[in-house]
Every structure is written in C-alpha cells, then in structure tokens.
Design a protein around this nucleic acid. Structure first.
Ligand code: MN
Ligand code: MN
Ligand code: ZN
Ligand code: ZN
Lengths: 140, 140
DNA sequence: TCTCGATTTAGAATAATTCTAAAATCCGTT
DNA sequence: AACGGATTTTAGAATTATTCTAAATCGAGA
C-alpha cells in the first residue's frame, strides 16, 4: 500500500542533489533544504547566505555562490537578472514570468497562462529562442 | 518655404540636451552626438567610454556614468538590465522589446507590435505596472 | 569680466562576484 | 576501519562594475 497521503511526495534535498549528479555534501544539503523547503523562492546569494547563518549553518559565501551556480547548471534552479549588480536564483524552474517590486527588490511569480503572448518575432538567422522572459515592473 | 527635405529633422545633440533641461557641456554634447548620431543604440558605460576615447573625446569614465544617468532621468535614454553586473542604456525610449544575443552580449530592438501580449495579470494591490519588459534570449 | 552654482575629474571607496590554492571532505576500494 | 584520489570548501585576495568624494573647472547670467 502507498503512503497515507495521496499527494506525490516532494523529493528530499538528498534526492534532488543525487538526481542532479552532484555530491551531497553537508553544505549543499543544507542549502537545498533551505531552498526547497516550501514553495517557490527567489533568493540572492547574499540573502541565502544570511539565512543560512541565522540558522547556524556554517559555510562560506563562496560556497553559496558555488552551490547556486552548480544547482543552476544542473537544472535545480534558474537564474534571473533584473537589476544590474544583483542576481536572483529561482527555485521555480518551470516556464513562468515575474512581477518585480522596484521598491523592495522582491520578485513574485506570474503564471505562464496569465501572460498570453500570441505572437513573437522569428529568431534571427543562426539563432534559437532559448527563453522568453517577461518582467512586469511595479511601482507605487 | 520649408527646408528641401520633406523629412522631419532629427533634433541636434544641443536641441536634445536643452530640451531636457540639462546644461550643454562639452562632454554631454560629445556623448549625445555619439549616442544619437544614427538609429537606435544599446551601449554600456564602458562601451561608450571606449568609443569616445577612440574618437579623441577626452572625458572621464565617471562623466560617462553621470551623463548616462542624467540622460536617463531626463527621458533621453532608458536603462535595461539583462545580465547581472552589466547595465545597458538604450537610445530608443519608445515602448519596445529586445532580442538578447547571449553569445555576444548584444541587444536588438523588437518592435512593440511583433510581440502581442493579449493578457496580463492585474497589478497586486497598492502597485502600478510601470513597464513590461520582454527579453527574448537567443543562443545557438 | 565677475560670480557662483553646476559639472567634471582623479582617485578612493564600495559592492558583487570570481579566483586561488591550501585544507577538508567524500566515497569507492582495500 | 583505513587509504587514496578526486571533489568540494574555504579564507582571503583579486577583479569588475559602479558610486562617492572633494577639489578643479566650466557655463551662463549679471
Ligand atoms: Mn557560473
Ligand atoms: Mn543614478
Ligand atoms: Zn520565479
Ligand atoms: Zn532597445
């Protein structure tokens, strides 16, 4: 008999890291737990580093950068650029868009189907469309 | 009688700067000439600085930053963020979108009407949509 | 020409990120 | 459980983009 809940279980941090083909080190596990604990998140290296510290997870900022890049390369995260000089990493790797709150610097997911794009130009010769990013910038 | 050409004349660099309410200094005039000489351009502070130097326009990098920001605040330019750690300034201030060539870091305008957005989510309470940016990322 | 606020400038400062190379860790094999 | 080699982490230095500081220069009206 399957487990009591009928919901598909969220993969554990260990599952995710293993499936990505990365070595499950103490630091990566801790960061994956923070990142994937609940729902979609948008972190900066600095914000994740501070969160880890405040939870007494001991690691260096360089490791946070390394892990975020490694996770991104393995498809566990995706990187978003909104403001020059600050990078965001998104735990939601499905196709979707964003609200950007200019006042606070926060991002919020916008589902794919709430933004209907009914025409797009052809890619220039020799190029392929890799991704279409829609950012809805918000201010007062 | 009007001038020989039936085209509306492009405003001169001096016109633009005056109309923006900025003092037409030697440096601003030189940069405006480079920026608005022909067609739509997408520059980085560094690229514009190098271009100026190569044309023997003597100014400092700080002045390029100052001018780009001043021009942007006056509506002569608009700023675009595509990649963390690099900012672009666009001489096309009309509403439009962009191709981004990941290999070269170059931007190309995409006209407003070649991207038809037929639905957008409502702005969250207390917020207004300031701008909708569509970036079509290209790779091989 | 005089005056004074605006602008420019060199260089220092700051911020985000990457690099370096040594130490620690992971993990398959003994 | 110990070994050994590859991988990962780390502190700190280095790099890059940008902003700041404060002194010199410039622009434009009186
Ligand atoms: Mn990287
Ligand atoms: Mn500014
Ligand atoms: Zn997202
Ligand atoms: Zn443009």
């Amino acid at each position: 008999m399957p487990s009591p809940s009928s919901q598909a279980k969220e993969p554990t941090a260990l599952d995710r890291i293993r499936k990505a083909g990365l070595r499950p080190t103490r630091q990566r596990l801790a960061l994956a737990k923070l990142l994937f604990a609940n729902g979609s998140r948008h972190v900066t290296p600095e914000s994740l580093f501070n969160e880890a510290r405040s939870k007494r997870v001991n690691l260096s900022l360089a490791t946070v950068y390394n892990a975020l890049h490694d996770f991104t390369e393995c498809g566990l995260l995706r990187e978003i650029s909104i403001e020059a000089g600050r990078s965001y990493f998104d735990t939601n790797t499905t196709e979707h868009h964003h609200f950007y709150f200019e006042r606070t610097g926060k991002l919020q997911d916008v589902s794919l189907d709430s933004v209907r794009i009914t025409s797009l130009p052809d890619a220039p010769p020799g190029e392929k469309v890799k991704r279409v990013d829609v950012v809805i910038r918000l201010a007062k």
